[in-house]
């Protein structure tokens, strides 16, 4: 069919963007399972997930570069090219943060006292949920502009939740009778995970603006 031939390149690019979104989504989910395994003391499972996040991150990088190159070399979407570029780079940043956080767990191997594990699990869940909502918002940005705001709203919600849990957890850490060095170490892990939700929120904020620009 002639029509498919004309728009073949477009469809390729569409599926690459879709795949990139998949990678970010999968990366966040793998991150969640990995952290949970660490909290449960299952080192093998944690390392397996770390490897997976690693691979997803590098595949994400490749896809992002490929998409960016095509957008510019074929002068596609001249109006929203810059926005799409920013969006992809910021989403990639989230994958980097997931990976970085897991590496920190792998390197420092912090001992997490049992009373904090539940909250660590919760904050991870909130961060990952906010990333999930962001991925949904990004997909909507490409296909269904009207439903972007619904997803952006969810990102905001989960980021707030993550903030609440993080504050609560930090207070608990510093009111415990651990050494200051351990308190500081645990705090840095809380912040690492919370940062993922913060980044997701920043991206969502920008996405809301891109969406206004994209409306017909």
């Amino acid at each position: 069919m002639k029509r498919t031939a004309i728009f073949r390149k477009t469809r390729e690019l569409e599926s690459q963007i879709d795949e990139f979104c998949d990678k970010v989504d999968q990366g966040a989910l793998a991150f969640k399972i990995g952290i949970q395994s660490y909290l449960d003391g299952d080192v093998d499972a944690f390392e397996e997930k770390l490897r997976q996040v690693n691979e997803l991150e590098s595949r994400g990088d490749t896809l992002r570069r490929e998409v960016e190159r095509k957008l510019y070399s074929q002068t596609l979407i001249p109006e929203s090219r810059g926005d799409v570029l920013g969006l992809l780079e910021n989403m990639d940043q989230i994958l980097n943060e997931c990976e970085g956080s897991m590496w920190q767990f792998a390197i420092e191997k912090p001992v997490i006292p049992a009373e904090f594990r539940n909250d660590f699990s919760k904050i991870t869940d909130c961060a990952v949920q906010s990333v999930g909502a962001l991925v949904a918002a990004s997909r909507a940005f490409f296909r269904d502009i009207d439903s972007v705001s619904g997803h952006v709203h969810k990102v905001m919600f989960f980021e707030k939740e993550a903030d609440k849990v993080s504050t609560k957890l930090k207070i608990a850490i510093f009111s415990s009778d651990l050494d200051l060095s351990r308190k500081n170490q645990l705090r840095s892990f809380v912040e690492h995970i919370d940062n993922i939700a913060d980044t997701a929120e920043d991206v969502a904020d920008r996405l809301a603006i891109y969406t206004i620009k994209r409306s017909f």
Binding site: I6, F7, T10, R11, L13, E14, I17, L76, I77, S80, V84, F141, F142, R143, D144, I145, D146, R214, F216
Partner: peptide
């Protein structure tokens, strides 16, 4: 056209093409 496009939910790139 805008009403039609809202219904069609085309991908940004497809719409561009």
């Amino acid at each position: 056209i805008t009403a039609g496009l809202r219904k069609a939910k085309l991908h940004l790139l497809r719409l561009d093409a």
